[in-house]
Write a protein that binds this DNA or RNA. Structure first.
Lengths: 166, 166
DNA sequence: TCATATTGGGCAATTATATTGCATTAAATA
DNA sequence: TATTTAATGCAATATAATTGCCCAATATGA
């Protein structure tokens, strides 16, 4: 069964785009504030937001926390290679990785030297070491692991570029 | 001038942790819904949320959009090496990269083969090609570029692991 | 153990905000 | 230009956030 409306490109006019831009920056704007910013009155603004939600263009809103203040000072980028490129290997890997709360992102990627790219958040290097040894390297099929550590976050955003819509 | 309270670890009790867990999953919960989920009445719940905001633990709330429905089907992971590791080179690079809306993440990282890791979102491969040629490789000091493309998003979250707070 | 202080929670009134129906206006179509 | 269609704004209503005040629980110190 193939999903039918996943790729449906919606027609987004200038006002919709403004709404999305605002909400990407600040999802806790009140509808009234949002309406003012996009040059609409409250009710049509709210209706547009609801429509964007129902269309699945607005997926959800999330609260962003400060990792340092929560004692999570270390972010690691891990590139992982698999020994065999079979669906079973991949499925098992993904299932296990999805159960680790330290993993913020996990992408299957193209490239010769790696199959997966992970972004992992932990308190410090000790915990990272434990995580790598007790979690990642224990997964069947993991053959190569390369770790990099984030020294500075130049950009850390969830916003999509909306300039291509026009 | 060194920031003083950036690292201040807050004491987060069980209820605060529940609040943060809920809001990380769903930032558009009403205060009443949140209060019920964490076992509090509305007013102390709201007071706790405000306190967490003032402490900077809650940074902001953002709306997540569906990239496919917005015609942004290609996500690339780019590893970039710089010719010289001088503060001027890095500053200039970061300033220019920060101006590209396609760049969702840009981290200065450890590692022998790369200095920066970027996550970039564009409509398709043509646009990616243009972006690489006209934007990235034109930045002074960029000496090596390696691109990977996201085939599948296994995990794509903004949630931090709160299990270490114990 | 008991008295006291301090912190946090709950209730209820108030204020602000979201939501809905309906008339109106603007835009699109022929 | 007449007609249809879609979207907007206003106003009334329903929900939710916010605040002040009192009470309960926990911590503190004799």
């Amino acid at each position: 069964m193939i999903a039918t409306n996943d790729k449906a490109l919606a027609r987004i006019d200038k006002i919709d785009r403004k709404i999305l831009e605002q909400l990407q920056k600040n999802g806790s704007l009140t509808n009234q504030q949002l309406a003012e910013k996009v040059g609409l009155s409250a009710s049509p603004c709210l209706r547009r937001v609801r429509t964007l939600e129902e269309a699945g263009i607005i997926v959800r809103t999330v609260t962003i926390l400060d990792h340092k203040k929560l004692g999570l000072a270390l972010t690691a980028i891990i590139l992982i290679g698999m020994d065999r490129h079979t669906p079973e290997r991949f499925a098992a890997f993904e299932e296990q990785v999805a159960a680790f709360p330290e993993v913020q992102e996990c992408y299957l990627i193209t490239g010769q030297s790696a199959d997966y790219m992970l972004k992992v958040v932990v308190p410090d290097m000790d915990h990272y070491h434990q995580f790598l040894l007790n979690r990642i390297t224990r997964i069947q099929g993991v053959s190569g692991v390369h770790s990099s550590f984030v020294l500075r976050r130049v950009i850390d955003s969830t916003a999509l570029p909306l300039g291509y819509l026009s």
